[in-house]
């Protein structure tokens, strides 16, 4: 069974390097801006998470196009599984360089799992190693970005107290995972187009920012929570309208063929 994917590489759209640069640089820049700016500007962490989620969705799109043998959601789950382990490790030892240490740790874990998947398990997907590195990195940045939205900084103590101890981390885990796994899962098929898939990623990531914004009201107060939610809503509306436009572009025309001819007309 080849669930999801046509068995070949993904085609068309922006080259992987562009998306990779947007995800890694945009993600880290957003996280650092959210950390250093006053708490009211913690939505920058969410913007970083959006860049990372778009990158993750593009990496899932490229690797899952080969057909994973199991559903697309599995790769989103492993992304966030590796991401959460690497993110908390990096923040605990890295201090101010925490997100970068997390990112490197995620790349190492991802590379090892990618090599194991190809060499030991024998999946035979040519881009598996690279894709696993990308997916782990994107998951890590998404988790740290959304944590910055809730905690206002990425200090290990703050993140543990305001995000992990009260359980918001579980929320981040699953909405970040949804942002990474859902876009390709929803759009896969022979007519899958990169811009349509990635517009869903933007939209899902904006929903993640809105939900993280709600959660941030506990620690950051209603003002900054309101700002987080407003930014998220604006991006969500933009992403959703874009997606709707792409659907109308890609949808096939429905042509009326009339009713079946009656018995008299056939004679």
């Amino acid at each position: 069974m080849s669930a999801g994917g046509s068995g070949g590489g993904a085609k068309g759209g922006y080259p992987p390097q562009t998306i990779m640069a947007i995800g890694a640089i945009g993600g880290l820049a957003g996280i650092y801006l959210g950390h250093f700016m006053p708490p009211a500007f913690s939505f920058f962490g969410g913007l970083g998470a959006i860049c990372a989620i778009v990158w993750g969705a593009d990496a899932v799109r490229r690797v899952a196009s080969y057909g994973l043998g199991t559903g697309v959601p599995s790769i989103g789950m492993i992304s966030l599984g590796m991401g959460i382990v690497a993110a908390l490790f990096g923040l605990s030892v890295g201090g101010i360089a925490g997100p970068i240490v997390s990112f490197i740790a995620a790349a190492i874990i991802g590379a090892v799992i990618g090599v194991l998947a190809n060499k030991v398990i024998g999946m035979g997907i040519p881009i598996m190693e690279q894709a696993m590195v990308e997916i782990a990195g994107a998951g890590t940045l998404a988790i740290i970005g959304l944590s910055v939205v809730i905690a206002g900084s990425f200090n290990y103590g703050d993140v543990v107290q305001y995000v992990v101890a009260n359980g918001y981390i579980a929320l981040i885990f699953i909405i970040g995972g949804m942002g990474i796994l859902h876009p390709f899962n929803a759009n896969l098929g022979p007519d899958e187009k990169q811009d349509r898939t990635l517009s869903v990623a933007v939209e899902k990531a904006a929903i993640a920012l809105i939900i993280a914004g709600f959660a941030s009201s506990l620690h950051e107060g209603l003002m900054s929570a309101g700002l987080n939610i407003a930014v998220g809503l604006a991006i969500w509306a933009f992403g959703f309208m874009k997606y709707y436009g792409f659907i109308k572009r890609d949808a096939h025309a429905v042509v009326g063929t009339g009713l079946l001819p009656s018995a008299e007309e056939l004679q």
Partner: peptide
């Protein structure tokens, strides 16, 4: 959270 992360890696 670490247990869940390790669980997902080993389930996938």
């Amino acid at each position: 959270m670490f247990a869940i992360g390790i669980f997902f890696v080993n389930a996938v």
